[in-house]
Design a protein around this nucleic acid. Structure first.
Length: 978
RNA sequence: GGGGAAUUAGCUCAGUUGGUUAGAGCAUCAGCAUGACACGCUGGGGGUCACUGGUUCGAGUCCAGUAUUUCCCACCA
């Protein structure tokens, strides 16, 4: 076929245009040719008019990528087996097969090590996003890996009822039908909510199946399931009994949008541009004199009950104890002194509004001040704010009050000011510090929870998160667990009808409720979602029902092995689960021993993933619209390609920038694997892997037929498995996958396959067997990462199609044991690396003397007889890999371009000689090597170095020096003859 | 205000307890239609390891400081 075309003759033609031209001549000798436009996102077909009147066209923005091949339609001996891997053809098939076979079912066998992993329950309303992709793939990798390690595996999935976000969603749905939840009441609302959940909930699992996750869906748990709910309520009742839960009127974070209290963790601090208003209050006892305060919230002035100054502030010393006049809703309020006031902020005088600020509240408490709450629960001002402002939204009221202050001359000035305010994560509005009666939890087992981490019972990966965790534990505050919502676990507390609810004497706290329900009213509120999910590791096993726990194998699987989640919920969830485990995974106890901690922790390892960001470093989110649709990615690159790609870009715990190029790499990798397998089985019949074992394959090997490539690749396989196991043990998935890729692609494909081609063509059965050993092991190792394609290849040629899922993967140790009979020699690796070096140098020489080597004959001046022998015994292979027609030995220096190899100097025969160029090249090399020699010599001349450095390092330098000197004299010899 | 992380090739990142001449992929440039793979193969170029000091015979690696980026925590109205 060789149409040769010398592009160099065409001046000023871009590379891509030359390629197109070349391609067009090859395939469409007429006037048109077809190519695919590829901009990394989508393919389009375009026609370009070329050839006859070929003119350079302006380079377009996208890059071109031609997708044809010289043999685009050629069909191989294995016609079922296309040369391009098409994921869509096999993915659906395998998922249903796995489910059919029950591959993901929980298994328990005596004497086997358990492995349990709990899926962080996605929101029941959730759909698959990029975060899940990473998180779930990682879990799946560990789960499938554990299956290959012969462990009894269960991966328990589930969903979270997602209190606020679910309720907001349902309310929005209802709003579309012009229904408000207050109108229809609690019961009806919950009916709607359940209906909605049953219809839309759990979509995520069908999406996850497309990704190939191998969780046990039959044992899926939902936080509102009957059993789980009973656990949540029992925990409440038990904690109340043990004195950790109390009801009280406190400052809480109030979300005016969803009208509920929130925990501190649900409030995010966001910096904003605000204004600082300076307002003067007239001193009652000294008319005409004023005290000036600074505030960002003039709308709360009507709630002022005092003005406070620092007791050490000389400016205001003589005012303490006097009164000033509140400018709005006029009233006289005292001027007090409190150390909490910062002299240096604003004017140094602080207006005290105990109902709307937590510092003010505390100051108010200290001075016995009254509380005037001017805000309603929805964030509007109420009657106490005065007629003028009542009913206004807090932000409108801010403007209005400022206007009014200006009008009455109380407003001194307004400054721009940047501060940070708490924002409700769900409602996405600023929260309001609000005094309200709520249920609080004083965390139990804090000391033990700290010890669980510092004592190494629970290990964090990466370790640095331990600090964050411990810091939170040090500064922990009581948890507000009640929510003014309907969707969730209703608080199991009943109050005697028409009684004072603040009096615990009127309470009934139990899971079942009072015996005479007619006389009681249940608390209206539900529990914080996290107050149910913190029991996840217990609840999924049926806690606290001992029978159910036995049935669900709590004692076998608990503590679970690894939790994989994002560091953003380290406080929300991870820390609290540890606390819950310590408190509840055993009989109630005030304090725990180390042994008890060890048995009560919910998981032994926590793997924190990074956050997926876009190219600009922004978090990927729906609202920003910067997140690709995961299902589209699966369609484009295949589930395997996507999994591979995402793992490739996910170093442990480091945020990762999403790069679609990695998915391309993943897809390419799968294709390479596909083709490597295709090649290894080409033109021959052999047992599918599903029907054969390592022993079967090894029995096909004739030991005397093993050449050095076979030996060194098998030894390399053991070494690689060793490294792989180490990475997996340390949860370094990224490193594991990199090691695998470089062994498979770099060692197996690039070297061994090429090197063994000659013998393969001769039909050497031993070589076939070695290929099978490698392919088999690689498929087993890769299966957790790319399950679909590996299972397909594993079963190739087997009509039964049984998943490789639970086939035990040989460890490095197993392989070593099995290879003993092959008598592999370690020194073969060394020889092979020299052969590879020889070939590389030769190829470089050919490439450098581009066009000069018309004869393709290589002469070697062998270093010694041993080198000569090695070259001789690998002649066919060397010729093939260097594309030489002839490789000959010579006894003298030749006048061709030369290079130094481990076996001696080589000379590339050519028609034209270029002695001056050669001389220049060699002189340059001599200079370079002389510099190195000098470096080595100074090092060795330094007695400090020789005395201090370890012997092997010094020895290494000595050896290098000797080698360099030898090389240099060789070069000098060549130079002399030129 | 406190704490963590990052800074290595044009881009995305590896880099073991300090030890030969700092690696990979992508991109780029040059060559290639070779019975597995152009989603491929071969080769080349490209780095003052953010900066400044220190420890050491020896620092990308350890220490201190600076700069930039970033995340978390925190009740200055």
């Amino acid at each position: 076929m060789g149409i040769k075309f010398n592009f160099r003759k065409k001046a000023n033609v871009d590379r891509w245009q030359r390629k197109m031209f070349y391609a067009s001549r090859l395939f469409f000798p007429g006037k048109f040719f077809l190519l695919s436009e590829y901009d990394g996102i989508k393919f389009n077909r375009v026609f370009l008019h070329l050839c006859e009147n070929f003119k350079p066209v302006e380079r377009p923005q996208f890059t071109f990528h031609w997708t044809f091949s010289r043999k685009p339609f050629s069909v191989h001996a294995m016609d079922a087996f296309g040369k391009v891997f098409v994921p869509a053809q096999i993915e659906g098939k395998w998922m249903s097969k796995w489910l059919e076979e029950g591959c993901f079912d929980k298994r328990i066998e005596e004497g086997k090590e358990p492995f349990c992993i709990l899926m962080p329950p996605p929101n029941v309303t959730g759909v698959l996003h990029m975060g899940h992709l990473l998180n779930q793939t990682l879990q799946d990798v560990f789960t499938r890996h554990a299956r290959h390690c012969n462990r009894c595996v269960t991966w328990i999935p589930g969903t979270d009822h997602a209190g606020i976000s679910m309720q907001v969603k349902v309310e929005m749905e209802l709003a579309k039908m012009k229904i408000s939840r207050r109108e229809i009441g609690r019961e009806k609302f919950l009916e709607h909510a359940y209906a909605w959940r049953n219809k839309h909930g759990g979509i995520i699992f069908s999406q996850l199946q497309k990704l190939g996750v191998s969780c046990d869906l039959k044992n899926s748990v939902h936080t509102l399931d009957e059993d789980y709910s009973r656990g949540v309520l029992s925990a409440f009742v038990e904690l109340h009994k043990r004195g950790y839960i109390y009801r009280g009127k406190r400052m809480v974070n109030w979300c005016p949008a969803t009208m509920t209290a929130l925990s501190d963790e649900e409030v995010a601090m966001v910096s904003q541009r605000a204004r600082l208003y300076y307002v003067k209050y007239e001193i009652v006892e000294r008319p005409g004199n004023f005290i000036e305060i600074a505030t960002t919230r003039p709308e709360t002035i009507m709630g002022d009950v005092a003005v406070a100054v620092n007791p050490g502030d000389e400016r205001y010393e003589n005012l303490i104890g006097l009164h000033c006049r509140r400018p709005l809703n006029s009233s006289d309020i005292p001027i007090i002194a409190d150390a909490a006031v910062d002299k240096n902020f604003g004017t140094g005088a602080l207006k005290i509004t105990p109902a709307h600020d937590s510092i003010d509240f505390e100051i108010g408490q200290r001075h016995g001040l009254p509380i005037i709450d001017v805000l309603s629960s929805d964030g509007t001002l109420n009657a106490l704010a005065g007629e003028e402002f009542a009913g206004l939204d807090r932000f409108i009221a801010r403007e209005k009050t400022a206007e009014k202050l200006k009008k009455i001359g109380a407003l001194v000035k307004v400054e721009d000011y940047e501060n940070s305010i708490g924002v409700s994560e769900r409602g996405n509005v600023p929260i309001e510090p609000r005094l309200s009666e709520q249920w609080f939890l004083k965390y139990p087992k804090i000391e033990e929870a700290k010890r669980a981490i510092s004592g190494g019972f629970v290990k964090f990966y990466p370790k640095r998160w331990e600090k964050t965790y411990l810091h939170w534990m040090e500064n922990i505050r009581d948890w507000c667990i009640s929510r003014q919502l309907w969707w969730g676990h209703r608080i199991p507390v009943w109050y005697r009808k028409n009684s004072n609810r603040s009096d615990p004497g009127n309470w009934h706290v139990s899971v079942e409720g009072p015996a005479d329900p007619g006389n009681w009213e249940q608390d209206e509120d539900v529990l914080d979602t996290w107050a149910s999910s913190w029991l996840w590791p217990l609840g999924v096993f049926g806690w606290p029902d001992q029978e159910k726990m036995k049935e669900k194998d709590f004692h076998y699987f608990y503590p679970t092995d690894i939790l994989i989640t994002g560091p953003d919920i380290i406080f929300f969830w991870v820390a609290r689960m540890i606390i819950a485990g310590l408190e509840f995974a055993g009989p109630g106890k005030k304090s725990l021993t180390d042994g008890e901690i060890k048995s009560r922790i919910p998981f032994k390892n926590v793997y924190f993933t990074g956050i997926i960001r876009d190219k600009l470093g922004r978090k990927m989110s729906k609202s920003l619209g910067n997140s690709p649709e995961p299902l589209d990615l699966i369609e484009k690159y295949g589930a395997d390609g996507l999994r591979f790609g995402i793992l490739l870009s996910a170093p442990q715990g480091q945020d990762l920038i999403f790069n679609e190029e990695n998915m391309v790499l993943g897809r390419n990798f799968c294709n390479k694997l596909w083709n490597a397998f295709r090649f290894s089985r080409m033109n021959r019949q052999c047992q599918p892997f599903s029907k054969t074992s390592l022993g079967d394959i090894l029995s096909r090997v004739e030991v005397q037929d093993l050449d050095i490539d076979d030996q060194s690749i098998l030894l390399g396989l053991v070494k690689f498995c060793c490294a792989f196991e180490k990475h997996m043990k340390n949860f370094e998935v990224n490193a594991a996958i990199n090691t695998t890729s470089s062994f498979f692609w770099g060692e197996y494909c690039d070297w061994y396959v090429e090197a063994s081609k000659v013998r393969l063509r001769e039909g050497n059965e031993t070589v076939f067997a070695v290929h099978d050993v490698l392919m088999r092991q690689l498929l087993l190792i890769l299966n957790p990462f790319i399950p679909f394609i590996t299972d397909e290849l594993w079963n190739f040629g087997d009509s039964a199609q049984r998943s490789m899922q639970s086939v035990r993967c040989e460890t490095a140790k197993d392989l070593e044991e099995a290879f003993k009979a092959l008598q592999l020699k370690n020194e073969t690796m060394e020889v092979v690396s020299r052969l590879r070096e020889f070939i590389n140098i030769t190829r470089r020489l050919i490439s450098q003397s581009n066009g000069m080597e018309s004869r393709r004959v290589l002469h070697i001046l062998p270093k010694n007889p041993a080198a000569r022998e090695i070259v001789n015994s690998h002649m066919a292979k060397l010729k093939k890999l260097t594309a030489m027609e002839k490789i000959e030995f010579t006894g003298e220096v030749l006048q061709f371009s030369s290079a130094q190899t481990p076996f001696g100097v080589i000379f590339l025969e050519s028609e034209k000689s270029n002695t001056s160029g050669e001389r220049e090249k060699i002189t340059e090399q001599i200079e370079k090597i002389s510099a190195l020699i000098k470096l080595n010599e100074t090092k060795l001349g330094n007695m400090e170095f020789v005395n201090h450095a370890p012997a092997n390092v010094v020895e290494g330098v000595r050896k290098m020096l000797a080698e360099n000197i030898a090389k240099r004299s060789e070069l000098q010899k060549i130079l002399a003859t030129l």
